[in-house]
Amino acid sequence: MLKTQNNKAWFLVLPVLLLVGFSAILPLMTVVNYAFNDTFGNNAFFWVGLEWFRDVIRSERMHDALQRQLIFSAIILAIEIPLGIAIALTLPKRGVWASLTLVLLALPLLIPWNVVGTIWQLFTRIDIGLLGSTLAALGVDFNLGRDAIDAWATLIVMDVWHWTSLVTLLCYAGLQSIPEAYYQAGRIDQASRWAVFRYIELPKMQGVLLIAVLLRFMDSFMIYTEPFVVTGGGPGSTTTFLSVDLVKMAIGQFDLGPAAAFSLMYFLVILLISWVFYTVMTNLDQEKEEVPE
């Protein structure tokens, strides 16, 4: 082996390291610092070990928020993924209409979170909102400030409106990459519409679906702005999701220690669940293969 050892290339990585260090690692370390210390200001810190973590893990408030968050993300995934796939399947494959529908679909994705929240906050108002007043006129007792179910329904419908397009666009891209020959083979083999979906389209969409599930899970699990604008976490604390609670704790009550511990655990939970999704979805095929015929 006449290979020249040259480690100079490491210097080329340095700028990235610095950038990541300042933008990600250092801020995270500040949070870590707060999570393990108590402070009374003046930059004086007292080591408390795992006390904040213990507090947060034991707090009922955190349990409730986590439970709400899990239910919310589960509902979001259960609606948006199938709906996104269904819409992608009905879209025209080419032509003027294809471009037009894609642009229309992409519109909600371009609207900032807080604007989406404001739109739906206004839309559902009983006095001036189109949806709210229509429902009131139809005799439906709709009030998201008072009724927890109304509040949840509003948030879910809003999120579906805002983000299903993302799933659709990803699936559409996956569908477009299927060569025409597969559909022709399906027709020759007399495959039903369902069989074509199950054995041709779904397998080819697996990659993009994994991305869609991960993105939608992470985003819905971290949702903050929309519930903050629309319901403010209410009525009561029925729509207080993890991040809403976290902000209340950190900025509202200024409990920086528990909030920091909370943030770290929040981050780890997202990481863990994403990892589970990833592993399960990438291993779906391999597991089946081991089953003997």
């Binding site: 060569p179 020959a181 022709q184 083979a185 020759i188 041709i200 779904l202 397998p203 080819k204 089946k288």
Partner: peptide, 19 residues
């Protein structure tokens, strides 16, 4: 339609049902 003709076709790129 294709299904009624009872023909088989082998394409340029192998078409198999991956899963």
């Amino acid at each position: 339609p294709t299904a009624e003709r009872n023909i088989a076709q082998v394409f340029q790129f192998p078409v198999v049902y991956d899963t």
